[in-house]
Design a protein around this nucleic acid. Sequence first.
DNA 1: GTCGTTGCAAAGCGTTTGCAGCCTA
DNA 2: TAGGCTGCAAACGCTTTGCAACGAC
Lengths: 138, 138
Amino acid sequence: MARKTEQRRWIRHVFQTTERPLTPQEVLTRAQRHISGLGIATVYRNLKSFNEEGWLKAVELPAEPTRYELADLDYHHHFQCDDCGRVYNIPGSPNDMASLYPENYQVSRHQVLLYGQCAECTAEATTHHLENAAVASL
Amino acid sequence: MARKTEQRRWIRHVFQTTERPLTPQEVLTRAQRHISGLGIATVYRNLKSFNEEGWLKAVELPAEPTRYELADLDYHHHFQCDDCGRVYNIPGSPNDMASLYPENYQVSRHQVLLYGQCAECTAEATTHHLENAAVASL
DNA sequence: GTCGTTGCAAAGCGTTTGCAGCCTA
DNA sequence: TAGGCTGCAAACGCTTTGCAACGAC
């Protein structure tokens, strides 16, 4: 059934060389470095089928486009940086939440989301702060 | 500045008489019982301004339209029913999650989402099951 | 009467789909 | 060569915006 195309090859490559969930746009941008003619529709179609065949897993965050990551990663939470918007994977345990389950509903799964500032943006902010301080001290 | 209109009056009323976060569509449907001519654009505009003035708070869930709820509710988690899609408020404490915060990022807030089957849908499913059992026994 | 507010329709925006041509097997 | 795959453009669904009429004060 499924044929091996250049497009698919490079979309796969993108996920094999990254460590965080990616949006369709991010995938397109990264894959286009290798096949410039790649269209966004092809990206959407392949993300969907990779997801259905179980190679990718959808990562959905509030008010954000659906991201995707490799399906075989260990259990983890997600962290989104308020500054750059990137989403990172955070180690965690599925049992962290058991005590929070209400009794009147049948809870079958949960999702934990963390928000704040990532290491990179924290460093950047510090640098700018120092730069500004330097300017101010002139 | 802000004028008292019938539209606003009834949109407010909707939130004062419900106990769970509502989508713009749900707000429209409920408010139209009192002002039939109400337009969806007016609902969006007012939800936005109520949110900005701090009377409402946005409740964002993955792959779902933004819902709104009264801003002065106690801290709680959200639970979405896989069957009916309704979102319910669940008691909880902001401290539940402290132990999950990673050290390499500046975590400033978190969100906990629970998914499963609500009491109403569980009851409904049981009823149907009994009905089917009854039919099967004929 | 002023100008904030509303309803309608059009515009946006991200995602999906129809279709003709392309390319894998 | 058959038919799955792709790129383009149109279609979609939800949300926002432009605009003329309306109505609160």
